[in-house]
Computed example of a mutant assay.
Amino acid sequence: MPIDATLPYDTDNIFARILRNEIPARTVYEDDYALAFHDINPQAPTHILVIPKGAYVSWDDFSARANDAEIAGFVRAVGHVARAAGLVEPGYRLLANAGPDSHQEVPHLHVHVFAGRPLGPMLSKT
């Protein structure tokens, strides 16, 4: 199955290094399939990143190559993080960038969980 050719996986990306414990992170959740931690440059009062433990670049790459247990485990981890942080009632936003047009900065699939204030429209009109 093809991997996302727009952004190849870099084994030295910051999230791969966090997974190898080479760089510290403020972890909020970890299981066999995912790791969640606070973003070092938060864009909202609550800004948590959830990453799969496998080497996947994007949703496309993940959905094509991950096994069913990895997919279910990662999706459940995102939900667990939102519930554990008390974000369900007030609401939260999930964002996953893929490729250069989306401004993906790290070539490792990750979901941003934003919350803590009204977040405004999904996209700016610019």
Rank of each mutant, 00 (worst) to 15 (best):
A85L: 13
A85R: 01
A85Y: 04
G86K: 10
G86D: 10
G86Y: 03
G86R: 05
G86L: 04
G86Q: 03
G86M: 08
G86A: 10
L87N: 01
L87E: 00
L87Q: 03
L87S: 03
L87G: 05
L87R: 01
V88A: 11
V88G: 06
E89W: 02
E89N: 10
E89R: 13
P90C: 07
P90G: 09
P90N: 11
P90Y: 07
P90R: 13
P90I: 10
G91Y: 05
Y92C: 07
Y92N: 07
Y92F: 15
Y92E: 02
R93A: 11
R93D: 05
R93G: 06
L94I: 14
L94E: 06
L94N: 05
L94G: 13
L95G: 09
L95Y: 03
A96N: 12
A96I: 14
A96M: 14
N97F: 06
N97K: 13
N97Y: 12
N97I: 06
N97C: 07
A98S: 15
A98C: 15
A98H: 07
G99E: 03
G99F: 01
G99R: 02
G99V: 10
G99C: 02
G99I: 06
P100S: 13
P100V: 06
D101N: 14
D101M: 14
D101G: 10
S102F: 05
S102M: 11
S102W: 08
S102A: 15
S102E: 11
S102R: 13
H103P: 00
H103L: 14
H103N: 12
H103A: 14
Q104G: 07
Q104S: 09
Q104T: 04
Q104W: 05
E105K: 15
E105W: 02
V106H: 01
V106D: 06
V106E: 07
V106N: 10
V106T: 13
V106G: 08
V106I: 15
P107H: 09
P107L: 04
H108P: 11
H108Q: 15
L109W: 04
L109T: 04
L109C: 05
H110L: 08
H110V: 09
H110T: 12
H110R: 15
H110S: 05
H110G: 11
H110E: 06
V111N: 04
H112N: 09
H112S: 09
H112D: 07
H112Y: 03
H112G: 08
H112I: 08
H112C: 10
V113P: 01
V113A: 03
F114P: 00
F114G: 00
F114A: 00
F114S: 02
A115R: 02
A115C: 07
A115T: 04
A115L: 10
A115I: 11
A115H: 02
G116C: 07
G116V: 04
G116M: 01
G116Y: 00
G116L: 04
G116P: 00
G116T: 01
G116A: 11
G116K: 03
